[in-house]
Amino acid sequence: MRTLSTRRRHPLAGLLVLAVGLLITGGLYAAVAPKAATAEESASTSDIEAGRQLFLVGCASCHGVNAQGINTEGADGEPGNYGPPLIGVGAAAVDFQVGTGRMPMAQTAPQAPRKADEYTDEETAQLAAYIASLAPGPQIPEERYLDWESVDEEGLAEGGEFFRTNCTACHNSVGAGGALPNGRYAPSLDGVEAKHIYEAMQTGPQQMPVFSDDVITPEEKLKVIAYIKTISEQPSYGGVNGGSLGPVVDGVWVWVVALGSLVGFAIWIGWHGTRTKKR
């Protein structure tokens, strides 16, 4: 004890106490706090490396060589970014953005449109592995959360309720899409893979809010997917539906097709009289 008490005024004693305090606090926090997600471990080192090479060629010009993002100053002095940082976005975000062709972007625009993908499935997986290796983030969903055909009728109705409550305001009641301010839009959900719908809910790409697993559980996400898939694959019971865009399309049909043809008939009827020829 003497050795300790004689050294208690040592210049480094304070630092030591601070270090011990920090260690205890940190240790306790690590033991008690909820377990954080861990970085993708299943991906092989070679995949990560291949992904890094692809990233350096195709993505780094906007997202930075270490995926840290490139910051700029916007026209109005607001901080902006040329490409956002990708550290922590997770494999799900990469799989969604690259798998639906949104990334790489063809040009700067309010929003990246869905287009044919530039990378093969294997390359997409390698890119995802690389990004996932940088920091933990949402992962590509498991197969059992994508098998929407297994959802029963009750689940389908429940998925519909979720869809109408959370999604239709932007995506329209059949997922035909809708406009948002300043040239942005909620894209059509027609023909989007179940996996990508799941990932979009999970990562909230572009204008979309994030629906994390705490808000909508994976099982509920599956029900939403089942509802979207069911209504977009069901036949159009009433005939040609004009993109399910609502009454605007009805107005076009009635003026062009119905009234157009009836005016044609009226001209035909009006033309068939002996006196009209003399007019």
Binding site: T168, A169, S173, A186, S244
Partner: peptide
């Protein structure tokens, strides 16, 4: 009343 769908329009004559 808590829900709405994108593309909500009136019929053409109220457009």
């Amino acid at each position: 009343p808590a829900e709405v769908t994108a593309g909500s329009q009136p019929d053409w004559y109220m457009g």
